[in-house]
Nucleic acid binder design. Structure first.
Length: 420
DNA sequence: TCTGGGGTCCTAGGACCC
DNA sequence: TCTGGGGTCCTAGGACCC
């Protein structure tokens, strides 16, 4: 058996931990720049607010129904994610962290327990210890466990846990599960399937493997087999090392000036280098891209990108920022208003496995000490205190007007509450 | 006026090899 | 007249996920 533990409306739930007054009220959390709704409470979903709806298109709903609006506060959510994972690790021998708000549990070997009790107890325990409500589905495959967890969200009677394993139960549930709700069936496949009369997970399961293979490739087959109860998606006991690291943002307004754009790209590059070092990795390639506002048809559109290779794999802020700035200068077109830019590191390899340069060994050691010093200073205090000059001292050009305090990580942001 | 960010894998086609 | 078979690597684009 496999379990999926899925945090309910995760970002909203994090905000509610410190704002219990928002229980029962519609709440949404916004993406970068306060652009789109990326998390909604059940009440907000009931109002018809969809995942990814731009704020300006749902303003009328927000005002009419007194929706509480938050800017994304990733520092806070990452900390809650860590707390939830701690609880999950205590409950199963192996967990696979799937995303910031989901993890699979490998239940193989746990034969003599009541899985339904296990699921419900885990949900209650997580709520008690972290404040975050979670749904736990247990089933013979990961795909079925996902469906079981989803069931908990619609049926409060399940008390956050659902064990789905008997053939007749699986059939009953699959008959009611729209095909587009199945893990692995996306935006493109669902409409195609509907056209050929496939509307539910059960309909899909009735098709022949050959048919699926021809129309949807190997991934379709995997999903089909999983729905039949045959585990076909591996359990990843170890987190795999990343193949690419990307830092990109949309800006709060268009940037026409290369110098200003370069400070932003320098920040992305610097964040990328930091992430590489924190994972003990080096990169051998760097892609830099910059794009104009694709929603404005009254302005010339421009998308530039360039990929470069480093002579030696690196995770140095100095190297990566310098290269990123040079690359940006090559793709920059004067007169264009850039709305988004970013940096992608690839060709990632573990630092230990990479032989040191034959040249300048001493210089390289010095350089590494410098990076360690930077990381240690920036890690000690709230916020970045040492940056390289080309990043500039200004912030990223993005707005977040509704950000909550980072309650659990930044002491100076915690509001003083007077209880009368 | 205002429209997210960060990932993964598969597939098809071209270039090239013996 | 007749025009193989089996690889690799790379890239772009598509599809999927949260």
């Amino acid at each position: 058996m496999f379990a999926l533990a899925d945090c309910n409306n995760f970002f909203v739930s994090c905000e509610r931990v410190f704002r219990p007054d928002l229980e029962g009220r519609p709440v949404i959390v916004l993406s970068n720049n306060d652009g789109c709704a990326i998390a909604r409470s059940n009440e907000a979903k009931a109002l018809g607010i969809k995942m990814g709806d731009p704020l300006f298109k749902i303003r009328h709903l927000v005002q009419a129904h007194n929706v509480a609006v938050f800017s994304g506060n990733m520092t806070l959510y990452a900390d809650f994610s860590r707390r939830v994972r701690t609880v999950l690790r205590e409950s199963a021998p192996q967990i696979e962290v799937y995303s910031i708000d989901e993890a699979f549990l490998d239940m193989r070997g746990m034969d003599n327990i009541n899985f339904d009790d296990f699921a419900k107890n885990l949900s209650a325990r997580c709520r008690r210890l972290t404040g975050i409500p979670i749904s736990v589905g247990v089933a013979p495959t990961k795909t079925l466990a996902k469906i079981a967890a989803e069931l908990c969200k619609h049926y409060p009677k399940l008390r956050g846990g659902c064990f789905m394993h008997r053939d007749e139960d699986i059939e009953k549930v699959l008959r009611k599960t729209p095909i587009e709700d199945v893990w692995g069936i996306g935006r493109r496949s669902a409409p195609r399937l509907h056209l050929s009369g496939i509307h539910t997970a059960w309909d899909f399961r009735q098709l022949s493997e050959e048919h699926i293979r021809n129309r949807m490739g190997i991934n379709g087959v995997r999903t089909w087999r999983e729905l039949h109860g045959i585990p076909s998606i591996g359990f990843e006991h170890q987190p795999r090392s990343k193949q690419s690291i990307c830092n990109s943002r949309s800006f709060s307004h268009e940037i026409y000036d290369l110098k200003l754009l370069a400070t932003q790209v320098a920040k992305f590059a610097s964040m990328t280098a930091e992430k590489l070092r924190s994972e003990g990795s080096l990169c051998s390639e760097l892609t830099v891209f910059a794009a104009t506002n694709r929603f404005r048809d009254d302005e010339p559109q421009q998308y530039g990108n360039i990929k470069l290779s480093f002579p030696e794999p690196t995770n140095s802020t100095l190297h990566i920022v310098r290269s990123a700035r040079e690359a940006l200068a090559e793709i920059f077109v004067p007169g264009c208003g850039y709305k988004k830019a970013g940096v992608i590191a690839s060709g990632i390899q573990p630092r230990e496995a990479t032989p040191h340069s034959m040249f300048d060994a001493e210089k390289q050691a010095q350089h590494e000490r410098l990076m360690r010093a930077m990381d240690s200073i920036n890690g000690k205090h709230d916020g970045k205190n040492v940056v390289i000059a080309s990043e500039g001292m200004s912030r990223l050009l993005s707005s977040s007007e509704h950000r909550s305090p980072r309650y659990t990580t930044h002491w100076d942001e915690i509001p003083v509450v007077t209880i009368k």
